[in-house]
Design a protein around this nucleic acid. Structure first.
Lengths: 335, 335
DNA sequence: CCGGCCCTGTGGAACGTTCCAGGCTGTCGC
DNA sequence: GCGACAGCCTGGAACGTTCCACAGGGCCGG
């Protein structure tokens, strides 16, 4: 339980602590014999460099902090894969922390990361206020993933949610739908633009009168609540665009319980293209975002500030793509 | 980008660094006026204590490291919830790292955590060798979650996979099945005992001759491969116990593609009771493990060693429970 | 009025590293 | 034979904290 230090290694190898340091970080100008002696001593003692001490003197920890707002949402898993891979590739390690969708806990998680003096911060769909984000960005390069952000000093990478919302409506209209409703994502990342994309497209198609957006959330429960609400509307919509796949799952469950068949009675579209959704009761039509790439781009953005000294803000927007599967069909002739 | 230090705060507040330290960690014996002055100065400067420096001098970081073998497997999400909650409750923070199911990456992730001098380590279904686990345990209290482990100095918490495997067979036998096959989980955590539970139960029911275990893995792909293999066997089994839910999803997909109806033609049982599985094509019969509790127990085990100085090894085994849903039915009369 | 103690506050050492300035050898060129 | 220089190695300062020993002042009791 007692950690050997560089001094212990030095003593055992019969050299100075400086030499050990030189060997450990593979600096040049060390004789082969000393190198060997040090390495042997280190192995024998089970020496492991203390990153905290290292970070203190170099002012770099080589660690990137990642805040994941909701570990349960598969959207983040691929993003984290991308983050992790990019970080490692550039000699950094990613450390995750989560706030379980609770603002205060998220803020504390960010605090912990910042106190640890991570070199950069990736906030995946954070729920915290932009003031908190701005504050973080003041001490370390920070990028927000999954939502557009207008805070000074903060970069962001996200897909074009507005466009994605439009894509969905276009597809449904093409299939012949007019009464297309939307269960929106509340304060979730990207929820607003998805909704406005929906509304704009509806208007564009001359279906403004059929616009109907009911509240939901980016969780299963959100979809359940939204769909229940929707089922009380007088002429049932013939198609529903649900804010994300997770909530679409919930919505599908409600429809099933109500004996409403998808897509015969009603068409459903989600957003995110989660893998699990392919295996759902019925394969969901959805919108895909390049999650993995978003993760690696986020890291690239952090590194640009960190290593190249960029000071201007960047907002990277990636295009979403429609994935048509089995939950969308033309509407029933008449109801 | 320059982090203010305790000295900066001291200068601004007109006191000594020691006083600032006293105030920041809420030690007693500080006058109200000094406290206020320090707090104001800290706020004005945006001071944030440096955990690395703190950790260096107290030999505690108040951080628990968590290695998650596969972020994509929902099994871990609840476990992490439990870990996080328990950690926070005891004044620690959990930091996650992942190895993406690759042994070497996992080992590196553990290394990073150890170099950071986390106070304890929770390894969730690690893929690394027990030598690596033992090594980690030598420098810090370590508990393995999700698999039983026989390494000295390491605690573990897991469900009784052997019992779970038996539960599944009992259920199927009770429904009238005899040709019950198993797609096992390879080297996955708990895969071996689940398999031996299956085999023992088969023998117990006098169905030893029908034992048929084909290789799989704890991933969707594992289930796909296993089921494809199974479909080539001469008299098709009437029921299949798949090593975990994730692979059961894959297996169900294969059956669907082959035009085989579940549960009419064949019954399927998974393991883990993932939430998504309730919403799958057809609600999966599965075995539930108390994931959240496993997480909090893991933390408790770490803390027992850390704060109470326990030195004996503990192996906590939790009971699994069968969750009967829609993928199991009596076998077809004759085929 | 003095000794002691409590209360508040201070400086310095230590934690485990890195980095800098510099110190030996030994070789080479002239 | 001597200066220069390369190659290898060293001690000490610094990083931002905590903690310890101690200091000054006020107050109390005798």
């Amino acid at each position: 339980m007692k950690h050997p230090t560089i001094h212990d290694v030095a003593a055992r190898a019969g050299v100075s602590k400086s030499l050990v340091s030189l060997v450990m970080r593979e600096a040049g100008n060390v004789s082969e014999s000393s190198r060997r002696a040090v390495l042997d001593a280190a192995r024998a003692l089970g020496y492991r460099p203390n990153r905290a001490a290292q970070a203190l003197v170099r002012r770099r920890s080589q660690i990137l902090g990642v805040l994941v707002s909701d570990l349960h949402n598969p959207f983040f898993h691929d993003a984290v894969d991308g983050i992790d891979a990019a970080a490692v590739e550039h000699g950094y390690r990613a450390l995750l922390s989560t706030g379980h969708l609770v603002t205060k806990q998220e803020a504390q998680a960010i605090d912990t990361l910042l106190e640890l003096r991570v070199d950069g911060l990736v906030l995946a769909s954070p729920r915290v206020t932009s003031a908190t984000v701005a504050e973080a960005a003041q001490s370390v390069p920070t990028v927000v993933l999954g939502r557009s952000v207008r805070v000074d000093g903060v970069d962001s990478v996200h897909n074009d949610d507005r466009l994605g919302g439009g894509l969905v409506v276009d597809h449904l209209v093409e299939r012949g739908h007019e009464r297309i409703a939307h269960i929106h994502g509340g304060k979730g990342a990207g929820a607003r633009p998805r909704r406005s994309g929906y509304e704009a497209a509806m208007n564009r198609h001359g279906l403004g009168e059929h616009i109907l957006a009911v509240p939901g959330a980016f969780t299963e429960q959100g979809g359940v609540d939204g769909m229940r609400r929707l089922l009380t509307t007088k002429p049932l919509p013939t198609a529903v665009f649900v804010a994300n796949d997770l909530s679409a799952m919930g919505a599908l469950g409600v429809l099933d319980d109500a004996g409403i068949t998808v897509p015969d009675d009603i068409s459903v579209v989600g957003y995110d293209n989660l893998r699990a959704v392919e295996y759902s009761r019925i394969s969901l039509t959805t919108v895909d975002q390049p999650r993995y790439d978003m993760g690696s781009i986020a890291v690239a953005l952090v590194l640009e500030r960190l290593e190249e000294g960029r000071r201007t803000d960047r907002d990277v927007v990636l295009p979403p793509t429609l994935v048509v599967r089995d939950t969308t069909a033309p509407p029933r002739r008449r109801r």
